[in-house]
Amino acid sequence: MVIGATGQIGHPVVGALARDGWEVTAASRGGGREETWPDGVRTVRLDREDDAALAAVVGDGCDLVVDVVAHGARHARQLTSLAGRVGSAVVISSVSVYEDGEGRGFDTQGEPGGFPEYPVPIPETQATVAPGESTYSTRKAALEQELLAAGDRLPATLLRAGAVYGPRCRTPRELYFVKRNLDGRGRRVLAYGGRSRFHPVSVHTLAELVRLAAARPGSRVLNACDDAAPTVAEIAAAIDAVMGVQPETVLVDGPPPAPSVGDTPWSVPAPVVCDTSAARRELGHAPVAGYAEGLPETVEWIERRLAGRDWREAYPDMVRAYGDLFDYAAEDAWLGTR
């Protein structure tokens, strides 16, 4: 059973498992079916917060539960309560659980000097934030803690995902460059010299990791990222190549020179790059595609969603997460001072 089956991650996960021979039940709030799924995929409506409904879908039991939307201790306990009827689980977590040697993490990055300085690359043994219910990161840490503690009853693989990209994303970082190119912006600004690295992961890489973990049940955490972590300048160039444009890039050494200028969703003062060797070692994982190879379908999806719509209507979650990403007046004002 895949919980969150019709979302950005769930959609390719269902397809990968079904093509691998699993009898898949795709559970989602709407209970919809995707036309790209193989025949035989069963669909059900499921409210993730309804304990009784989840137990009813599991029924007498299933070999595997894949949960792509779980967060917090309560969701973990939901899963462990089914231990007697579920063979194993694969659950999506996040690299945001990590903290550095000074106790800084994603939750402190907005504070002065609060951005974490992680080792490069970050191993799964790196310290994590204290579990709790106050933030996304602490809830993911609580999810991990509860599931790992119940590993003798329910083997669970926790996949710590990086910056997820692919179709169906509600907060696609690629929007930053795609919309600028569609708007004919001839110049763009990149802070930190365009060298920022925030390790991405394709939805297809995640689906492949789920498929491999499903065949090798265990209680563990694994970084789930692409094989390489491109710089933000390399990401911009790759998107340009897909869209057939060549705008000028203005590089700024250091932080954004003015509010909203050069501050992309990948722009970080220190690298966030994960060690992926454990997944290769434990699951036999090999890269399914690089960042550039996964971009065309992502760009196409964003272009279709933007067609004839205000970007804030098309991507309201992006507004809530990042604010105004397209303050062209501020950019032009700063560029005019150079």
Rank of each mutant, 00 (worst) to 15 (best):
T128N: 06
A163Y: 04
P121G: 15
A156Y: 06
G193P: 07
V120A: 09
L147C: 10
L175C: 02
G113T: 02
E117R: 13
D152M: 01
R187M: 04
T205S: 12
L182M: 08
E124P: 09
L206A: 14
L209D: 06
A150H: 10
Q126G: 04
E133F: 15
R180Y: 03
T135M: 08
F177H: 01
A191V: 02
S134R: 12
E117K: 15
T135K: 09
F198H: 04
T138H: 13
A150K: 07
G184M: 03
L190W: 00
E111N: 10
G113I: 00
T128A: 14
P121F: 08
T138I: 08
G194C: 03
P112S: 14
K179I: 14
A141Q: 09
Y136Q: 07
A156S: 09
A161V: 13
A213F: 14
A141P: 05
E146P: 08
R139W: 12
Y165F: 13
A213S: 11
S137I: 02
R170P: 13
G114R: 07
N181R: 15
G162K: 13
G166A: 10
A142S: 02
Q145R: 11
T171H: 07
L190Q: 00
G151K: 15
L209S: 15
R195I: 00
G194E: 01
R187P: 06
V178W: 00
L154P: 14
L206W: 15
Q126H: 09
P112H: 03
T205F: 02
T125V: 05
R173Q: 06
G113Y: 00
R187L: 02
P121N: 09
R187I: 13
P123T: 03
G162E: 14
A141Y: 07
L148M: 12
L212C: 05
L154T: 03
L158T: 12
L190I: 00
N181T: 07
R185G: 06
V203N: 06
L147W: 05
R188E: 05
P123Q: 10
R139S: 14
P167W: 13
G194D: 00
E133N: 15
G186P: 03
L159Q: 15
F198L: 04
G162S: 11
V129A: 12
E144L: 05
L209K: 14
P155H: 12
F115E: 03
Q109H: 08
E124K: 04
G162L: 12
A214Y: 11
Y165K: 10
